[in-house]
Nucleic acid binder design. Structure first.
Lengths: 358, 358
DNA sequence: TTGTAAGCGTTATCAG
DNA sequence: CTGATAACGCTTACAA
């Protein structure tokens, strides 16, 4: 069952090869024959068998996409821009999810090899460098998105999480804050590690010793993050005057935790998030945060991958390493440290409340 | 290039058919031969060619997934649960995005036909019923997720948006509200139409005439939604006492609009959202909203699809139509209508602030 | 410009 | 239990 090229060749009164040429706009086919073939294909509601096509030598016209969590809104936005670029190139996407599980990741890689995808966008590295190196050996084009590897020279597109965190903390230091809490997740997340590095570097540069008590690790649910933060605020003998939160979503819980601990943002405690989500400008107070473009990462990753796939085999390909710089967006959730307010006039700080509400 | 089954058969000293049987755990193969084949496959880092496999008669082990916007967080969560179910069945997902564009949708459908996917999960109907009917004719199993068609009997899993809106509005009416604004999007979104139906039905049942002035349509960006809402609140001669917003994300902008119009939530205006996102319980004030499970829709849709795909051809398949009922989650963003506060003691209303902050 | 024929890498049927 | 051998539906030399 299923209509094949034979059927349409028969109906059009031509051979299979002519039909193939006509359908693929390849080679010379008389306008007349082409018209008959196209008509037949249309009449029969023909859908070329992609498997046969790929097997016979054509490319699979498919990209693999591997994410640690395609349900996450940041990854979803990357997925979307990747999909858009792929669609524009007439490619389709095989989407895999690893849940940061090394076994799933290896399985995904194997599936994509079996499907003979033309290239892979990798947004998950749970099993270390080995699988990546194998990809290089096998000559399967790929681009790392939203992450990079220190010890493997690969194409990658990512946002500089270290610098984003660094900017946030430096800004808080300029406001006079010295006790800056960091509310974040366990270390197995790539971005968690990176932002922590930026956090510590900025502290160091400002002569602030790193205090492990101010590093709050929680699991990935808002309720427990809320509770952990509130408990910490109530129990610490030396309260922080600022909190740098892993991202904007979790900042909502932190804002409420501060509030419910009887403190005011930003008067008692400044809060800075990360991601600059759509709604962050509309929180109460509007959230100071770090902006970095998920769409850009996805789009550029996909575009570089296509470039690489189309690169002539005999030409040397120069590794592309794109680092997008995040930007601090200052809103009303942060202000000068209460202890220094006299020394540090608020007017030195540019506010940006209307940037997204205009 | 690429190691084939021939290579591993050669290395294992067996025929290709024996190799195939060993690799697929099909038919009887001597333990000895199987071991040699498996070892060879491992040594050579073999990846079976999925295209050859599909062409030779095996299924493609692939599902199609069509969404209007895979960057949207609600769809992303559906995608995730779909992916998880598929992975558990050892299936992979070809993800398509239509942007509600009929042409893209038809293209996606065609691509999936060409790829000979075993089934399709459809979360986009922009081109009407015709393509769906064709799918039925062609015998390609599919399940509609997050939507349904009135005039075609198809399997589908969706959340009852009408009822969700109905519950929200009925609740507001019980609180004495009679001027209830609905802030929403243009009508081309399926869920927009459905929720509007529920809104109007609840008004009608409570003897409240539908007032077009209270229906606010905006585009999909938060800043313009914010502005539109604020302008409306400032210009309407008869202000609403409650606002039912299309979803929680947009509710953030509405909360700020109310606030910036010099009004208080819920004292002057009650606000009710839709979706019950993670952070909705942490907004200020915590948002009354309607909860409906994206994960459930995705999971059940995928499971029904697998059931259908495995259904014996000769047995009749009874259409499955799963309607998930949303639930109202009452928090602090809503309270009795200011005009009736004397008649309607607040104590009759159950609050649920801790439900997600516990 | 067109047709013939040889693969592509599997699976499946059928003898041995 | 094993091995030829014929599909599967298409692309692509090559020949006409």
């Amino acid at each position: 069952m299923g209509v094949t090229m034979r059927d349409i060749a028969l109906r059009a009164g031509v051979s299979v090869s002519t039909a193939s040429r006509a359908l693929n706009h390849k080679g010379d086919v008389s306008p007349d024959a082409r018209a008959r073939v196209l008509a037949a294909a249309h009449d029969l509601n023909y859908a070329a068998n992609a498997h046969a096509r790929a097997l016979a030598g054509a490319s699979s016209h498919t990209l693999g996409l591997i994410f640690i969590n395609n349900g996450d809104s940041f990854f979803a936005r990357m997925a979307r821009s990747v999909t858009d670029v792929a669609t524009a190139h007439n490619y389709s996407i095989v989407a895999c999810n690893t849940n940061e599980n090394p076994a799933h990741e290896l399985q995904a890689l194997q599936t994509l090899r079996e499907k003979r995808v033309d290239g892979i966008l990798i947004g998950s590295i749970a099993s270390g460098e080995a699988p990546i190196r194998r990809l290089v050996e096998e000559g399967i084009p790929f681009v790392l998105i939203n992450r990079f590897l220190d010890d493997v020279e690969t194409d990658c597109v990512y946002s500089d999480n270290r610098n984003g965190a660094y900017q946030a903390i430096s800004y808080l230091c300029r406001l006079g804050h010295r006790r800056i809490m960091h509310v974040t997740y366990p270390d197995d997340r790539f971005a968690v590690r990176e932002r922590l590095i930026g956090y510590r570097r900025a502290l160091a540069e400002n002569g602030i010793p790193y205090d492990p008590c101010l590093l709050l690790r929680t699991d990935l649910s808002l309720p427990s993050l809320y509770q952990t933060t509130k408990d910490a605020l109530c129990s610490l003998d030396l309260r922080p005057t600022a909190i740098f939160v892993y991202n904007d979503t979790t900042s909502t819980a932190v804002l409420k935790a501060v509030h419910d601990a009887g403190l005011a943002v930003p008067h008692d405690i400044s809060v800075v998030g990360y991601d600059n989500l759509d709604y962050s400008a509309f929180l109460d107070p509007p959230l100071t945060t770090v902006t970095h473009a998920a769409d850009e990462i996805g789009r550029m990753g996909a575009e570089i991958l296509f470039e690489k796939m189309q690169w002539p085999q005999d030409q040397p390909w120069a590794i592309r390493r794109v680092v997008l710089q995040p930007e601090l967006v200052i809103r009303q959730s942060s202000e000068a440290c209460p202890h220094n307010r006299a020394n540090q006039p608020e007017t030195t700080i540019e506010h940006d409340s209307q940037r997204h509400a205009a």
